[in-house]
Design a binder for these strands. Structure first.
Lengths: 152, 152
DNA sequence: TATTGTTATACTCTATAACTATA
DNA sequence: TATAGTTATAGAGTATAACAATA
């Protein structure tokens, strides 16, 4: 039985997750926490409310993740300069270094995987994956829209 | 800034998960439980120990997942014919129907996504993804091996 | 009155360790 | 003595709801 392209894509996603989880193992970091660090690195210092929106989770969840990351020394809570309700979360310098290193490894992995593809196939591969990602994103957005409609 | 191929692949993985989770929403099913159902559909009636190995999860975890799926009527526990320690888990007929339908939708999604790719790019895409999956699998296995060695 | 974050509570997934029944 | 599954316990991630402080 031939393997569907879809199954290979799912396998790739699983392998990524497993590899990431293994890389964090022993550091006290988890997938959810690294995701938050990643978002912080890209967005810069942010309120917890903004982090909740960017991560698409509840504010309550951000409280828990920030609690953990603060305890492990990866982030710092500072008061908002004008809004006393808000809290600004920012990476510590060691965490910023860690994230920069991770981004480097990420680019390196990208190159390693691309090197496994025959040079004459690369352009078509890039186009095909971009097309699939776009199509899938449309499908997911449509499905979510229908659900919202059904719920109202 | 150009998007890395790796980032698109990660995005595709996330979108799949989100779409799956949305599809189960309201049915009482979760990603972990559907995964177990999927394994059961492919392996046929199995002991919990075999399910633990196939899902790469602890036996304790299987107990919990089977408890939930039994309560929701998706699986049935029956005694092992010869080994009185063992339990055989099998899909109920309704769950078998559900899984067959899901497999159909899965193949349909595969076709839909492939249809978004230019016909002349498809062969190269298939080859490229297969090459990447193989390379990544090798990397993950190697990394796990090093870790095992370090732990001993 | 609306918003930000937290406390309270609960559920799922996951793990390890100890235990029971059986092989 | 080893194996299959469960109970006990624990921790992370997630959610909703109620609440305090502030806007």
């Amino acid at each position: 039985m031939e393997t569907l392209l879809l199954d290979r894509l799912l396998l790739i996603g699983e392998l990524f997750q497993r590899d990431m989880a293994r890389a964090f193992d022993g550091t006290g970091l988890t997938t959810a926490r690294v995701h938050l660090l990643w978002v912080l690195q890209h967005a810069g210092p942010s309120t917890q409310r903004d982090l909740a929106r960017l991560c698409e989770v509840t504010p309550r969840n951000i409280t828990g993740l920030v609690d953990g990351l603060e305890a492990s020394g990866h982030v710092r809570r500072t008061p908002h300069p004008t809004d006393r309700r808000s809290v600004i979360v920012e990476l510590t310098s060691t965490a910023a270094d860690t994230m920069a290193r991770m981004q480097g490894e990420h680019a390196e992995l990208n190159d390693t995987l691309l090197a496994a593809v025959a040079p004459e196939d690369r352009a078509a591969l890039e186009r095909g994956i971009a097309a699939i990602a776009t199509r899938l994103e449309t499908l997911v957005v449509e499905a979510a829209g229908e659900e919202d409609q059904a719920a109202s």
